[in-house]
């Protein structure tokens, strides 16, 4: 069985002394796991987290771990490593993808958003906080927590939307919010608010928010 796509190398875990188990977020097949032979010892074309490239995954049967053939095209991680803020964003993005997304499920929109995020961080035309927040909202949407900030979840009005319901992820106007002020999140949305939703998702999955997300510096 052979699968081919383009992807981002998001995780490398040592396997023995020479090889690694890699996790690659691909455009066509979502998150994929497989073995990268010689990843720890290769001098030329070394596999590194943050690389974007072409990947082919081979295995005799579908259920096997399989072996990757990885051809890096660009090392986006190298451009971000020197900046603590940008590195923390990249670490957070990769750890969330690695821990939240199921394997071999197509998330093409999120993949493109992730590529845009990395390129946006390198170009620095927009603020890193905005870029990251936009990406995390996209992630929540893919996980079934689409935030609706267009109208009030109670009365449907489009004015005075200053609160967000933690249960539904929909905006709430000032009037409807009055009895629940202690339970609602304030708008505009921030990374602290999206973190609350992530905590909820991790709680459902029986896990905790990864360290990289907690160390996010924005």
């Amino acid at each position: 069985m052979k699968l081919e796509s383009t992807g981002i190398l998001i995780e490398l875990r040592p396997l023995g002394e020479h090889d690694s188990v890699a996790r690659i977020f691909t455009r066509d097949h979502g998150v994929m796991c497989g073995m990268l032979k010689g990843a720890q010892v290769s001098k030329k074309n070394k596999s590194l987290v943050g690389q974007v490239g072409n990947v082919s995954w081979n295995a005799r049967v579908d259920s096997q771990l399989g072996v990757f053939h990885w051809e890096p095209e660009k090392n986006l991680g190298a451009f971000l490593m020197m900046n603590p803020k940008l590195l923390s964003v990249m670490n957070s993005v990769f750890s969330l993808i690695a821990t939240l997304l199921p394997e071999r499920e197509n998330y093409e929109t999120l993949y493109l958003q992730t590529e845009n995020l990395l390129n946006g961080l390198i170009n620095q035309k927009e603020d890193a906080t905005d870029i990251y927040l936009y990406w995390e909202i996209g992630l929540l949407q893919e996980l079934g927590y689409a935030l609706d900030l267009t109208r009030c979840s109670g009365c449907g009005t489009k004015d005075n939307l200053n609160y967000l319901s933690p249960r539904t992820g929909r905006a709430v106007c000032d009037n409807c919010a009055k009895p629940y002020l202690d339970k609602l999140f304030n708008l505009p949305i921030t990374v602290d608010v999206t973190k609350k939703f992530l905590e909820k998702i991790y709680e459902h999955q029986g896990g905790v928010v990864p360290l990289s997300r907690n160390l996010l510096k924005l």
Binding site: L48, G50, M81, P84, L87, M90
Partner: peptide, 15 residues
């Protein structure tokens, strides 16, 4: 090490 983990550690120690 000049890797993502190495740089993350370096930035953390500096902070």
């Amino acid at each position: 090490p000049n890797t993502v983990e190495g740089k993350t550690t370096q930035h953390y120690v500096m902070s």
